[in-house]
Amino acid sequence: MINNRAVYIVLGCAVALLIRCNPADKIPSDEPVQRHEADWSDGLATYEATWPEKFGIGRPADKSFIAKWDIDVRPDGKGLPKGEGNVKDGAVVYQNKCASCHGVNGYEGPEDKLVTDSTGRNTIGNYWPYATTIFDYVRRAMPFNAPGSLTDQEVYDITAYLLYLNGIIQEEYIITEKTLPAVEMPAKKRYILDDRRGGPEIR
């Protein structure tokens, strides 16, 4: 049978030995950290010196590539392409390319709800401040499985349909690059411009 007292003695000696071998007793506590940081910086500089001028990854962005991505639309409508959309055609496009994620009526899911219902969740109808945001986001990011695949015509039609489903425009209203910025969103009054001064400003 193992003697418990002997076990305690052995463990005590082991702990004492580890304490005596601890280099922290011989070197100030902050010195190892400073030395480590210096070594790391020197090593990084040496490593960066080995980098080639170019890594051979990707390709230069030509004008056509940039034009494909430079499609942002501002709240005042700047950036909208010429075109028009209507609710009737938008309903067809929506059912074919949007309903599987957002529901037949825009609020069943399984993904984000687009149309205001009794749950009070944030949707286009009660949260978005600018109608132009609908066009910009749909054209840039939808449908989820093929973003950027919709034509401008389809995006205009979907935008009209979503505004109609949220009770913001009438069924006969035609969405164009001129009429879309004029649509007053119900939530716009909830937002204010950041006109603070005295700190970093982004304009």
Results as ranks from 00 to 15, higher is better:
K97Y: 05
I192Q: 13
V138R: 00
L18D: 09
Y137K: 14
T179G: 02
H36I: 09
I66P: 01
T123S: 02
R139G: 09
R59G: 00
A16H: 02
T176Q: 01
S118N: 07
R20H: 09
I174W: 00
R59H: 02
A38V: 06
Y164K: 02
I2D: 09
G106H: 04
L18E: 11
D39H: 06
E201T: 11
V33I: 14
M185A: 09
E111C: 05
D25E: 13
V104N: 06
I158C: 06
T176R: 01
T132K: 09
Y164P: 02
P143L: 13
I71Y: 01
H36Y: 12
T151Q: 14
L180Y: 03
I192N: 10
V73Q: 09
R20T: 15
V138W: 08
A160K: 07
S149H: 07
C21Y: 11
K26H: 11
D76L: 05
K113L: 04
E84Q: 12
Y127A: 15
W128K: 08
C98Y: 02
D25T: 14
W40D: 08
M1W: 04
T123L: 01
K188G: 00
R203W: 05
F55Q: 08
T151Y: 06
E177M: 00
M185E: 05
V92G: 03
I71F: 06
